[in-house]
Design a protein around this nucleic acid. Structure first.
Lengths: 354, 354
DNA sequence: GCACTTCGGCAACAGCGTTGCTTAAGTGGC
DNA sequence: GCCACTTAAGCAACGCTGTTGCCGAAGTGC
């Protein structure tokens, strides 16, 4: 690392603290304490950030016997990013500001099975329309205000090259250079990642997020996004989080993956049989395995099947954990746009050194 | 991060490259390429390291039409660390040099069940004896040459505070300040960690180690050390790697942990029944779960039970992985001192920024 | 009204890696 | 044997980082 890299490292550190402070804001001295830098260094860094329009002063704290601290806040409108959630049957595109808040959103049905050509046409159209109209009622976005686009889709795929692998049931996507093609079409930097990873990233960057947690997604399939020590775990082949094909029943029913007794098969079979309590129990066993293996701080449940009966699933999972003496909190994700928001974070995160 | 921190960061970066280059050595220009620093910066850094005695010039490369590159090497004898493996029935202490090579070793039987008092007496005695006699035939160690001691023992424990939890079958250790007491007795900085974590750390720091792997240990129990992206995963409660209590047989035989169908119970039962092939198959299922969930690059098997029939276990695990279409390499750890060597790395690793 | 406390900017500074140049030490053509 | 060329590595000057010392600004409380 060299001196310019040190500079941007520290700027990102300060920006991230401004971000997590949210609308409450944070003073220069608090920034100094949290970063370990001297107050004078923080003054210089925040002066640069203010000059760039990324931060602004916003009132004062109460005095404690001397000059009151000046509160600084992130300026969310200083930059934006596009988040694209390309699901099997639906396309969601949204524009997020620097704080990750969605300021505009478009949605339309798609069929992944139609292949990359027509689907990427649809993505391009929707993103262009999104940028042309957003923000609603505000001034049009100036040049350079959109940092890029993050695209989340079902795995398997390779996040480094931005190329999908053999998506189950959608063979025409395998090997298609989705990231590079979209980058060329949109004229923006594009990042591609698995849907569960994007959702987990978005959850990890919430101000009160625990350091390590698992986002367990039960929808058309079963997958997880793992966040360990604040960072999403992807693995070299973007394969991490394949919770659905964990063997939890030796010599159990066969699965299309070649294995037997896979968590996904058992859990979805219970759902199909109309036994939600059993599905929740099986999901709980999978969650307990995660908690014990990875020593995580929290389990977050999401996905269509879970959100159809959220409290029942949460209670079922909690019961399994409690039965093993685990006190790990079990939460629920809200809203259907978690993946699209996380996709926007794929582009925003580097600004904050994440 | 401030300027002095930047300096030591880069020094650690260079030291780590010198370490992984081993006896082959590495030239200044190669260091510059690998670190991204300019050759001149590398020259300054290596000059400081040479002045401190941590690095030395060692010959030249063949010329490629100009001045031949000067080869630099780590000076392993520049510093040492103590590694302590405190197992249920045996105590191993060794002295490792800066390259992690054991230069002296002592071993004696102990009984963890005797409680912290007599056992820590034994540790103190053995470490003192080790330092008094080592290195054999060489000059006595100068002051400050021993950076500290790493202690590895069976979990559960808290690596941050250096205090064991309720070790199964050894309740008198729970809450005993092992790290602080040993630090006071030895007059050295002490780091405490789980045996599997220490072994995994040592394996992770071998020059050719993959970025992500699992060290699966089958001995008196079943545990794993997880290395993800080059760094051991410990978790906030040092609980990561609890592979033994993964449920792999829903509603299977009960386990002392409160669960059912735990991998450890099934695997050890197969061993006890004299069915090593079945034990290997079960272990393979556990390994496959790890590979799929974490997208790791390699599985390394170790522990007394495995090492009693190493090739049979490796073959059995490979077969399960292959049956699932996984080509992840399965290796074996050699030698009974892997944990003690890893324990020494607990102290050495920070020198190299690890 | 004044002493005191606390915050934050100005100016000078030490030290980082970088740049431009020089010297050292080889190869290979003639 | 000489010389042009190539490559490696150190010296000196430099830009820029965060730090230190100091001072004015802006509050509180006797």
């Amino acid at each position: 690392m060299n001196v310019p890299a040190l500079r941007s490292h520290n700027a990102a550190l300060v920006l991230d603290l401004l971000r997590t402070a949210g609308e409450t804001g944070i003073s220069r001295l608090e920034l100094a304490e949290r970063t370990g830098l001297t107050p004078q260094a923080v003054s210089k860094i925040t002066a640069r950030l203010r000059a760039e329009g990324l931060a602004a002063e916003a009132g004062h704290r109460a005095s404690t016997g001397g000059k009151p601290r000046t509160v600084l806040r992130l300026v969310p409108s200083a930059a934006h990013a596009v988040g694209v959630h390309l699901d099997r049957d639906e396309l969601t595109v949204l524009l997020a500001d620097l704080a990750g808040t969605a300021v505009a959103l478009r949605r339309r049905p798609v069929d992944l099975g139609a292949g990359p050509g027509p689907v990427l046409d649809a993505v391009t159209e929707e993103v262009r329309a999104l940028l042309a109209t957003a923000p609603p009622g505000g001034a049009p976005l100036p040049d350079g205000a959109v940092l890029g686009a993050g695209v989340a889709m079902p795995g398997p795929l390779d996040h480094r090259s931005g190329v999908p692998g053999r998506v189950t049931g959608f063979p025409e996507w395998a090997g298609h250079p989705v990231r590079d093609e979209l980058a060329a079409r949109l004229g923006l930097p594009v990042v591609l990642d698995k849907d569960t990873n994007a959702a987990a990233l978005g959850l990890a960057l919430r101000p009160a997020a625990p350091g390590s947690f698992a986002y367990v997604h039960l929808g058309t399939g079963l997958g997880a996004g793992l966040v360990l020590g604040g960072a999403p775990l992807r693995g070299d082949r973007t394969g991490a989080g394949e919770l659905g094909h964990q063997t939890v029943l030796l010599d159990g029913p066969p699965c299309g993956c070649g294995g037997r007794g896979c968590l996904e098969v058992l859990c979805l079979a219970a759902v199909a049989r109309g036994e939600p309590a059993e599905a929740a129990r099986i999901l709980g066993v999978g969650a307990a395995n995660l908690v014990r293996l990875l020593d995580i701080d929290q389990v977050l449940l999401g996905g269509r099947v879970v959100l159809a009966a959220p409290e029942a699933f949460a209670a079922g999972v909690r019961e399994v954990l409690a039965g093993l003496g685990l006190t790990t909190p079990v939460g629920l994700t809200t809203g259907r746009d978690a993946v699209a928001e996380g996709a926007a974070w794929l582009t925003l995160a580097p600004v904050f050194g994440k």
